[in-house]
Design a protein around this nucleic acid. Sequence first.
DNA 1: TTATTTTTTGAACTTTAGTTTAAATTTTTC
DNA 2: GAAAAATTTAAACTAAAGTTCAAAAAATAA
Lengths: 198, 198
Amino acid sequence: MSSFRAQKMAKKKQEILRSAAAVLIEKGYQGTTMEEIAAKLLMTKGSMYYYFKNKDDLLHQCHLMIMELCLEGIETVFNSDCTPIEKLRNAIKEHILLATSEKSMFMALAKPNHNFSDEQLKEVLELRKIYSQYFDRIINEGIEKQVFENVDVKMARLIILGALNWIQEWYDQDGPQSAEEISDAYARYLLKMIIKEK
Amino acid sequence: MSSFRAQKMAKKKQEILRSAAAVLIEKGYQGTTMEEIAAKLLMTKGSMYYYFKNKDDLLHQCHLMIMELCLEGIETVFNSDCTPIEKLRNAIKEHILLATSEKSMFMALAKPNHNFSDEQLKEVLELRKIYSQYFDRIINEGIEKQVFENVDVKMARLIILGALNWIQEWYDQDGPQSAEEISDAYARYLLKMIIKEK
DNA sequence: TTATTTTTTGAACTTTAGTTTAAATTTTTC
DNA sequence: GAAAAATTTAAACTAAAGTTCAAAAAATAA
């Protein structure tokens, strides 16, 4: 029966993390208040402390949740048996889907650097590293199979992830471009950048 | 003689703005304190109010200063009589130079949205628009002269500026890549993305 | 239903940072 | 060098937000 309790608790935590993420993407770390996170759930800020040790803890777990979501996506893409071209295309599209879908806000948590403790920061940066390494591996695969130009992998990856991460700065749910259209264009152009011309 | 006074005041304002910009890039809007801005100049936060109405005013002017620096650069590039390819290459390099040189931090002021008044925000967004339009014009020039592929100009520009703006997230003065190397690689790869293959 | 446990509340406390101000210091002017 | 103006200071004030906690409310179990 304790499992039922635990589940309920976990669910509530999820709700709070989601609310926190929504505020976080809008206001940034310092601009996010316990009050606002709570208000969105019709709770009082005091209740938050029943579920999380403090604001740092809450936002850190929020960050982890988002990164894990991203990692799940890229792992699936990488482990598929597509060609490197298809993998990169899918990775780009998956990333954009996450960056634009309302539930996630991905790296919107720009610059985690100055808010987290050393240990928390290390954890977050490690996840980011793993994520970006998947892109490196895909690019390397393409180079080995001679379908990509012999690019500087790190540079190419930085350009690609930079372009992708910037989307959240301007993307508007109700804007002229759908996430689908953006995905197509980005995948096309960014692939052209590294695909070997015959 | 009032001009001397005015100049001295202006100089001090510049110093404060520079200090504010340095903090801003590290901590973000909400994380930037009057105290820290002042401390860097061996002043007290109270003094700041002799030069600026309040924190909003200070950071808004800081934002404008940076944008004007950027506009200066892109205007020069655009008005040169280079080919579109050279112009785009130079625009990219100039942008990276600004983004990496210690004095500027460019768009580091991510998401100005939730901090400025409507009027201030309008002003900032207007400057950003002008800046990005220069990129559009350069890309359009290239398409017209048939040296660039017939790309979706807006998408191409978003990809390019996205990749460029992300640099500030990872660039490290003492890192393995020099700003020069980054510039070269970025210009090369991003140009490959839109240059017409013969 | 009653007792027990879990969850939420709301007020109090604390800390931090923006702002004001009168006084002190420095700079300029005559 | 003294008077006037400009600049800086340090302390006080204010507001906002993180945190704690005892009591109330709600949920669960007996």
